[in-house]
Amino acid sequence: MSWLTSTVWKIPRAGTLLLFVGACWVAPSAAQELRVPESAMAGQAAVISTNGSGHATFYLIGPGTSIKREINLGEDVHVAPESLEDSGQYLAIVCSESCGSATFYVQPSHPASLSFLVHPSRVPDNQPDAVSGVAFPFDHFGNLVLDPLAVTFQAAGPKEKLFAREVSTRDGVAWFRTASGKSVGPLHITASIGPVSSPRVIAQVASEPCNLRIKGQRTAKGILVETEPVHDCAGNPVADGTIVTFNASGDGEKSTVDAPIKGDVARALITDSGPVTISAASGVAMTNELRVGGK
């Protein structure tokens, strides 16, 4: 510590601090002057001007870009469009004996695609606020377009046009929510901005089975039992493949068959020979009881 002489000691304290901060600072203080574009658009070339003379190293650092190039001071630096595809802040640095820097922003280009998220993929009919969609406009380079844009949402069911609505984007997002339609089948939903559109298809399906009923008769092979056409409470046929579980009980034994609905009807064969009581269930829906006598 002997190198801290009394000369330093006489400097006011604040000044001492600045002096030593300056001494410890490794970055140069004398900066080169750079003129960067006031506005730039993604995918477009830009020009950055420098002043002074002599050789220098030019750097451009931005999202997805890092360029290092030897330049002559006082000449313009041309930045190619492919180096400015990502929107965001870019940092230009010029170093000769010392370094200078400037920042500029590249704005997103025009909307070229729409990311459109629609939910759910399958929706029961007649449900309020059951369908929702969110759209994000992106430019050709994958930048989110943040300027307000009018997005048109359209939805059409198999038998009806559900809605058409125009929603303005805010911070690059537009969304909607709507009720599902009355009939089952594909629901086509489209989001569009001018010529750019994004279609989606979701399935409108029947709700839970309603008034489930069975009938049956004894045949040579056993008791052939089947449901009446299975519909939901709005009268739409329940999706084929939905399992109906048939239960037959009698004489201390029981038989069960998990049968899928095919063509609105589920069928099963019960081989019990004695008198049995048969019922069926699908989800929370239960059927009537059917009593069949023995052979």
């Binding site: 029981k254 038989s255 068959v257």
Partner: peptide, 11 residues
């Protein structure tokens, strides 16, 4: 959805 297999005479 096939095959359908019934479970008979459970006891």
């Amino acid at each position: 959805a096939d095959p359908v297999i019934g479970v008979m005479d459970q006891k």
